[in-house]
Write a protein that binds this DNA or RNA. Structure first.
Length: 284
DNA sequence: CACCATGTTCCTTG
DNA sequence: CCAAGGAACATGGT
């Protein structure tokens, strides 16, 4: 479930639900997701703390908390990895098989579940400092982008996944942005023209913005979705997944005709990850 | 059994 | 020191 748009949608959904809630208890079922924070450390820090805000940096979730009798704020950092999800659920409902951390909020509880346990929920903020600018923020300028692409000979698709270049673009939206900008995923980063750099920057921003816009129209209540939180994500089942797929023009569409030129969409492997592109409109 | 999967980090090699 | 490539992490779907 995790690229910038999905995390942003989750943040907007959870922020008002969490604000003002006090953590009564903490249950850690998979201590590895806390690393390098220990279970004892997390429980001691969070018990009694109150949520004051929730924001996002790249694909990271930033939970702001205030502890009783303390002025200094506490920051809880979340990352969903490949399969992580977070939602509130009633205490009467059964916990999912791969619940990693459960926060008791009184009437409800917040669950962080993660099938593959690649994500994390931790007090460690290492990694945040290394992140590049927010793609939708003011620092992601064409000039910044150009300077940082110049020094790399990596294929542009691979470079887009570098979170120190720009924070939040993942494997799906990297392919989507390159398709929109009509740039070959194999083109070396330092070979992009000034025009291509401008187009790609704009394509990244549009692809992410549109994805956030589509998501916000969906229901997000746990109760209204038969046990799911309503967040659509690739690999999910039912309506959520098909809705998501319609928004993707090349990702996972190998063999299908390009919507612009009818050429077949191809799949290739770069840096051990799949890339999807149109052989007709994304020439090197 | 084979291969694939939205992410990040660590290790090796050059 | 840096860049690049690949494996590892863990589980499930097809």
């Amino acid at each position: 479930m995790p690229e910038l748009p999905e995390v942003e949608i989750l943040v907007r959904h959870l922020a008002p639900l969490l604000k003002g809630k006090t953590i009564r208890g903490v249950e850690v079922r998979r201590p590895k997701v806390l690393a390098p924070t220990t279970e004892r450390e997390l429980v001691r820090s969070l018990r009694g703390a109150k949520f004051t805000g929730l924001s996002r940096r790249g694909k990271y979730l930033l939970f702001s908390l205030r502890r009783p009798k303390r002025r200094d704020p506490l920051l809880l950092v979340g990352h969903l990895g490949m399969t992580g999800r977070m939602y509130l659920m009633p205490k009467s409902a059964t916990l999912p098989k791969h619940a990693a951390v459960v926060l008791d909020l009184g009437r409800t509880r917040m669950v962080y579940e993660d099938t593959r346990y690649f994500g994390r929920l931790t007090l460690d903020r290492g990694g945040l400092e290394k992140l590049g600018p927010e793609p939708l923020g003011p620092d992601f300028t064409a000039a910044y982008f150009a300077v940082n692409l110049e020094r790399s000979r990596q294929p542009i698709k691979v470079k887009l996944l570098d979170q120190t270049l720009v924070a939040g673009v993942g494997n799906i939206y990297a392919s989507e942005a390159l398709f929109r900008a009509r740039i070959s995923p194999r083109l070396a980063a330092n070979k992009l023209s000034a025009g291509q750099i401008k187009n790609l920057r704009q394509a990244i921003r549009e692809v992410l913005t549109e994805a956030i816009g589509s998501g916000s129209t969906l229901p997000l209540d746990f109760a209204g979705n038969g046990g799911r939180d309503g967040l659509f994500y690739y690999g999910g089942s039912g309506d959520e997944s098909s809705f998501y797929q319609e928004r993707l023009l090349v990702y996972d569409r190998q063999g299908q005709p390009c919507i612009r030129c009818r050429s077949p969409i191809k799949r290739l492997v770069q840096g051990a990850r799949s890339t999807f592109y149109c052989v007709g409109c994304q020439r090197a």
